[in-house]
């Protein structure tokens, strides 16, 4: 295990750095109640206090500790990112596998739906969905799920089309295997690499979209400790309290950077043309 980890660090140093950042992010998110010195919504302090020993990242416009909100923001970002990716990529992948396997009119029809959804600019689609659904963290996840599903469906379908036509699948059919059994035992396992890559590469995307929605005032409600929402508040006092923008901005950049590095590395490892293997 340690040896494999060592080889990973040597062969994928950037991926290892990304993994380290992601691990730190997860740790901060999980330990937020212990790490944050104050509640993320606690407004009992003076507003616009510059970074100091008492408030290492300063306070915001209503007197909340920015450090505590950045810490709790990691939990919100990770929660929204992971939940929407798990839901969106899983649903999209299942959709892609099913339509590729069965083909015919259902496949053609469903792909036109995918075309329609992918034709809309993602942020416009997300904004429209939020306008229709209303402002809440759950609805942000729902909107992101709807945003991610077609991409996953299209990507996984392209892989599943090849798998469904493979000789071992034909053999399974010839031996009388049911569609459900063939999909479960043969098609899905052979699409897992794409699924995993989609999962890892889209968490950062989901975090950025969540932050963008909150920045535009259409994401999480304003009192939730969303990094994007914190940026919006910070922009209103850019000259007076630049720390309100700097720290959440830094958090978004670090999280996205780490997740992208890790995602790229996992993609390389699962791509037969690129991987050198860890074994």
């Amino acid at each position: 295990m340690l040896a494999a980890l060592g080889r990973f660090v040597v062969r994928q140093p950037l991926g290892a750095a990304g993994a380290l950042v992601v691990l730190a992010l997860v740790a901060v998110a999980v330990l937020a109640p212990r790490l944050a010195p104050h509640g993320p919504k606690e407004t009992g302090f003076a507003p616009y206090v510059a970074p100091s020993a008492e408030f290492p990242m300063g306070t915001d416009q209503v007197g909340r500790d920015v450090l505590s909100r950045v810490i709790w923001g990691a939990r919100l970002s990770l929660y929204v990112g992971l939940a929407s990716v798990v839901l969106g990529i899983t649903l999209g992948s299942l959709w892609g596998v099913a339509t590729a396997y069965f083909g015919g009119a259902a496949d053609a029809g469903s792909q036109r739906v995918v075309d329609s959804l992918m034709a809309l600019p993602p942020i416009i689609l997300a904004l429209s969905l939020m306008a229709a659904l209303g402002q809440s963290v759950t609805n942000v996840i729902l909107a992101l799920t709807i945003l991610l599903t077609p991409t996953a469906a299209r990507t996984v379908r392209s892989v599943a089309l090849g798998v469904a036509a493979a000789p071992y699948v034909e053999a399974a059919r010839a031996t009388g295997g049911s569609n459900w059994r063939i999909i479960r035992r043969h098609v899905i396992p052979n699409c897992m690499a794409s699924y995993i890559v989609l999962m890892t590469t889209n968490v950062s995307y989901a975090i950025v979209v969540e932050a963008s929605l909150s920045f535009l005032g259409a994401g999480a409600p304003p009192d939730e400790p969303s990094w994007g929402g914190m940026l919006t508040a910070g922009v209103q006092a850019l000259e007076t309290a630049p720390w309100m923008v700097f720290f959440p901005g830094l958090a978004i950049s670090l999280a996205v950077f780490g997740l992208n590095l890790l995602g790229d590395s996992i993609r390389d490892l699962t791509d037969p043309r690129l991987r050198g293997g860890l074994g």
């Binding site: 606690e42 209503v62 402002q135 409600p221 304003p222 508040a233």
Partner: peptide, 28 residues
């Protein structure tokens, strides 16, 4: 309403209400 600095004011109001057991969810 999403005008002026209503979002800041609303966050303070909700924070104050939380002290007496009223949990508000903001709807803009």
């Amino acid at each position: 309403r999403s005008v002026g600095n209503y979002a800041d004011r609303a966050q303070l109001v909700v924070s104050q209400l939380r002290k007496v057991g009223i949990r508000g969810t903001l709807k803009t």
